[in-house]
Design a protein around this nucleic acid. Sequence first.
DNA 1: AGTTAGTTTAATCATTTGATTAAAATGGTT
DNA 2: AACCATTTTAATCAAATGATTAAACTAACT
Lengths: 206, 206
Amino acid sequence: MAKKEILKEALAQGTEAKIKEAARKVFIQKGLSGTRTRDIAEEAGINLALLNYYFRSKENLFNLVMLESMQQFFMGLKGLVNNEALSLEEKVDAIVAHYMALMQVQPDLPLFILSEMRQDPGKIVNTFQMEKAMAQSHFFKQIKEQGPAKINPIHFFMNIIGLCVFPFLAAPMVKVIGGIDNKDFDKLMQERKKLVSVWMKQMLEK
Amino acid sequence: MAKKEILKEALAQGTEAKIKEAARKVFIQKGLSGTRTRDIAEEAGINLALLNYYFRSKENLFNLVMLESMQQFFMGLKGLVNNEALSLEEKVDAIVAHYMALMQVQPDLPLFILSEMRQDPGKIVNTFQMEKAMAQSHFFKQIKEQGPAKINPIHFFMNIIGLCVFPFLAAPMVKVIGGIDNKDFDKLMQERKKLVSVWMKQMLEK
DNA sequence: AGTTAGTTTAATCATTTGATTAAAATGGTT
DNA sequence: AACCATTTTAATCAAATGATTAAACTAACT
């Protein structure tokens, strides 16, 4: 009896995970309003009704995917910005390394999040409780106490995330304008890892 | 006869423009798949059928709005990057000034363009013939010939656009994370105008 | 006032789409 | 093999949505 339930559960989790993965893929590519539940079902290799059997509704599934996406995007950051063992320069290096690595495996995560946030800012913002965490972080304190530049921490924060993430937001356009293919783009992003760290430190110097 | 046609035409242009403006507003806010033609009709204060009478289809209207949006986003740039009267530093100042001013009047233009480009890169990219214009521009030449930094022009280009545009792409999140309201955000963007120029020039120095 | 070209509307159609349901298949247990 | 709980499917429903059509309205001109 217990054994049976475990087996069934394993199968169920298998299908459930498969659907969720398919949903993630399609939602991230097409957005909430651009995806049809049938797209997800097809991508998962299952029937439409099964999707509703597991997740009740499209919105449910979307909320799940969005929650996990937000966590994925902000998870690493939370750990870094309050690590008091790291100097400001070390934090910059760590944050840049973290986001460039994240973009390498999930290049269209930020556009997905920002697109959906435009359509319903309140809904998305509510799903994460980072409000105070960042403004009161060790990272922000270090920037305020930093020497000659006296850069506003919010600017500094926008810049470090923006310099890492923007090329991936604008990737299709960058490829056209730069006249480069996917392979060259990847190379460009490889060399960018070190460069963003350099640029960010220059902003602190004066 | 001629007089009559002129009058009718003026009226028609009035409604036509009204519909196009409504379409622009709704499309930019909700994207192609997120807008219903009825939304546009309501926003324009007209009936649904009138929209199809003037523009035949939703796609038609969207293509029009997207074309104009692309032109609006790249128009000023084309003029600046090949202006041989401007030094590299002057070009940087001019491009930053231009884009920060554009963002002040059209803050959600870039997210609209990038979102739709994700869904159908080919379609959007085809609507503008900037391919070679940028890679062969005077601006790119100047960056290559620039002194010690030897920064890749594509990086430099991504940075200048990104530093200007990213805060507006991420505005809802920036406001939450920074704990600031719309008014403070505007102030932040005002002071940013000068800062981006400074940061970009630092990237050239070493 | 009547005519006419141009404009606007209400009503309707056909398709798409999210969701439901009842039946069928599956796989383990007796 | 018969039975049972769980899983999966095909068929169907109801609402939303892009588009069309035929009729009504408007305003200029005679």
